[in-house]
């Protein structure tokens, strides 16, 4: 990867104000207490809570059933919003949160900075090529996030559930059915239709280490409450940062991206789809989507309806052979005596 894209990705990851659903562990036993955390900030750090009245939808999907979660079940602590729940039956579960839209007015310079920091590069390029870099913006934005987690060993098909959010990632394969070294395909849907040629950023819990933030430390950007603030209190200036683990991809003509899964851990996909709108008092509208999931190394594979565990339990195979020889021996003496 060349230096310029690395620098951009470095800035992206640190300054973005994305929304992620995270868990302490994406592999949880059945019928136990678990917690989903709503990170509003970066993948590594939550900087703000999400007001409950902004949650249009909170859903848990398992065994073909979608359960709407009461937003009063959430609580806040240390800038993180938490949802405690009890894991149900074994299976691959999906959780989703969709927020209501908000408007934010930004001066041209701040808007350009935000486009750069959050990776909305197509819009930034359009402004640059159309002499619009000095144009102020009023943007309507909303965020729609999903996470997949595995309860027990049994794999179910709930991972492919489309929640009907304005924008959302839908896996084309169960992440809990693969190992590192595999590729995973995802479809990006905008209003239910495949979104082509859209920038998608992919990272994992290893790619956020060694942050770079020389240029971005004093940039301002918007938060959920609509305020604008700097990142001075978040990252000291002058540190050396690299984000080589973040992949920048584009969806193909089918709205799909292929992600090379290089290791275990928690992975995420994020995208911001922005378009210009001709509406009174509004210049742009953006829909944000993230999807988180984990890649393990001790899960089971499932094919069709049958699963077989990755365990080497039971007695070794020579026991079977010894038992078989004993049986053949007994039969031999019986037939030999009979003769």
């Amino acid at each position: 990867m060349k230096k310029a894209p690395i620098a951009i990705l470095a800035i992206l990851l640190l300054c973005s104000h994305d929304l992620f659903l995270k868990m302490d562990g994406h592999f949880i036993p059945p019928n136990t207490n678990a917690t989903i955390k709503l990170f509003n900030g970066t993948f590594e750090r939550s900087e703000n809570v999400i007001a409950r009245n902004r949650m249009l939808d909170v859903s848990l999907v398992g065994h073909g059933q979608r359960t709407k979660v009461d937003t009063t079940a959430w609580y806040e602590k240390d800038s993180i919003t938490f949802l405690k729940f009890r894991s149900g039956k074994e299976g691959t579960w999906l959780a989703g949160v969709s927020t209501a839209s908000r408007n934010i007015a930004l001066p041209a310079a701040d808007f350009n900075s935000y486009l750069e920091h959050d990776g909305v590069l197509d819009m930034l390029q359009w402004r640059s090529e159309n002499n619009a870099m000095d144009t102020d913006a009023v943007e309507r934005y909303s965020k729609h996030v999903k996470t997949l987690f595995q309860v027990g060993e049994k794999l179910t098909d709930d991972w492919k559930t489309v929640l009907g959010y304005p924008i959302e990632f839908v896996p084309l394969e169960n992440p809990y059915d693969i190992h590192p070294g595999h590729s995973l395909r995802f479809k990006l849907l905008l209003q239910g239709k495949p979104l082509q040629n859209q920038l998608v950023y992919v990272g994992n819990d290893h790619s956020g280490q060694d942050h770079a933030h020389e240029e971005a430390s004093n940039k301002e950007h918007a938060h959920e409450d609509g305020t604008v603030h700097t990142h001075d209190e978040v990252e000291p200036v002058g540190e050396t940062h690299e984000h080589t683990g973040v992949q920048q991809l584009r969806t193909d003509e089918n709205g799909e991206v292929t992600v090379s899964i290089s290791g275990t851990g928690v992975w995420y996909l994020r995208t911001i789809y922005m378009e210009q709108v001709e509406e009174e008092g509004l210049t742009h509208e953006s829909n944000w989507a993230t999807l988180t999931f984990a890649i393990g190394d001790g899960h089971s594979h499932e094919h069709g309806e049958e699963a077989h565990d990755h365990v080497e339990d039971g007695l070794p195979s020579y026991s079977y052979w010894i038992g078989s020889l004993v049986l053949v021996g007994l039969l031999f003496f019986w037939f030999n005596r009979k003769k």
Binding site: H308, E312, L315, L327
Partner: peptide
């Protein structure tokens, strides 16, 4: 006696983590 040995048959047919790691 033979039925008692049958669980061993299944374990012999399992995909093992060791094999997967080897293939990886």
């Amino acid at each position: 006696f033979l039925f008692g040995l049958l669980p061993l048959v299944l374990s012999a047919h399992d995909v093992s983590d060791g094999d997967q790691q080897l293939l990886d």
